[in-house]
């Protein structure tokens, strides 16, 4: 068991290192001088020289690479020359609303997917067909269009929720539903398939033979079993939520990491975009590593090996 966990940790470290290296290689492989790329659209005397000094561009390439690695390792992501602020401050001040949105949406997606799978797995053909059509539709709907539709219905017509902003609990309802539904669509597909496979297992027949009610079978026995393969989707889920949050924030005019990133892309503020993308990759790698380890810890079959 421990060798499994250690090798998983090692692989994650390699992947994280590779992603930092890839951004370094990309920066140097791009045509043009690095100080021009990092400066974005800005132009004032002394800026290029300041960037060259901060990034140590007059040193050899291996030196620059090691310096880059160590700076990232220390959590120093450089300066945004467009915003004239350390990048980590820019990102840190906007992190909370995005995490709030992604977390609420993630929990909502898991609850929706679990509920639908619990109710429809292995049931009559009709309810399964309806559920599978809904899954397909939601998995095929662009996040931003769903947001526009919800805005139209609940903000402009019914006036239940505010149109934009991030003030109070009411402002998070529509964005989190928007972000959750397409994710829930894909998650339900996977979860239901896993539940249907589990329902065919001999232990379910045993439990059923003991006279346990159908709902208890599904809730206590089948769902727990079927959640295991779904756990491996956790990494994908987090990546999707982070990416989707960018688009959702734009639809609802919410402040957050997405709004900052989009602004940075449009002003060619490379240090900010680079930091957000790297942080997202780190979060993704860390979360999927944790889930994989959790997977080994909670599945007795893997623990025994």
């Amino acid at each position: 068991m421990w060798s499994r966990i250690i090798s998983r940790l090692f692989t994650s470290l390699v992947v994280a290192w590779a992603s930092v290296t890839a951004t370094f290689v990309a920066l140097h492989a791009l045509p043009g001088r690095i100080q021009d790329i990092l400066a974005g659209d800005l132009e004032y005397p002394g800026l290029r020289e300041a960037i060259a000094a901060e990034w140590g561009l007059n040193r050899t390439l291996p030196e620059q690479y090691l310096d880059f690695l160590f700076r990232i390792f220390r959590g120093d992501f450089g300066t945004s020359y467009v915003l004239r602020q350390p990048v980590i401050e820019v990102v840190g001040s906007q992190l909370l609303p995005t995490v709030e949105l992604a977390l609420t949406a993630g929990v909502l997606a898991v609850v929706i997917a679990g509920g639908i799978a619990l109710l429809t797995a292995g049931r009559s053909n009709f309810s399964r067909e309806v559920a599978s059509v809904l899954e397909l539709v939601f998995a095929s709907t662009p996040v931003f269009w769903l947001g526009i539709l919800l805005l139209m219905a609940f903000s402009f017509n019914l006036r239940w929720f505010p149109v934009s902003g991030a003030e109070g609990w009411k402002s998070i309802v529509l964005p989190s539903i928007t972000l959750a539904l397409p994710t829930a669509g894909l998650l339900t597909q996977v979860l239901r398939e896993a539940m249907e496979k589990t329902l065919d297992q001999p232990f379910v027949t045993t439990v059923r033979a003991r006279g346990v009610g159908e709902f208890i079978i599904r809730w206590r026995h089948v769902l727990r079993h079927a959640l295991l393969p779904a756990v491996t989707l956790g990494g994908w889920l987090i990546g999707g939520l982070l990416g989707g949050a960018v688009i959702t924030e734009k639809v609802f005019g919410r402040p957050g990491l997405g709004t900052v990133t989009l602004g940075a892309v449009l002003t060619h503020d490379v240090p900010v975009v680079l930091t957000v993308v790297l942080l997202a990759a780190f979060i993704h790698v860390a979360a999927s590593t944790l889930l994989d380890i959790l997977y080994v810890l909670i599945d007795p079959r893997l623990r025994a090996q």
Binding site: V15, G239, G243, G244, V246, V277, A280, H284
Partner: peptide, 13 residues
Amino acid sequence: SFPGVLLAMLIVT
């Protein structure tokens, strides 16, 4: 490990 939308945004930058 990079979320698709964010990686695409970096490349567009």
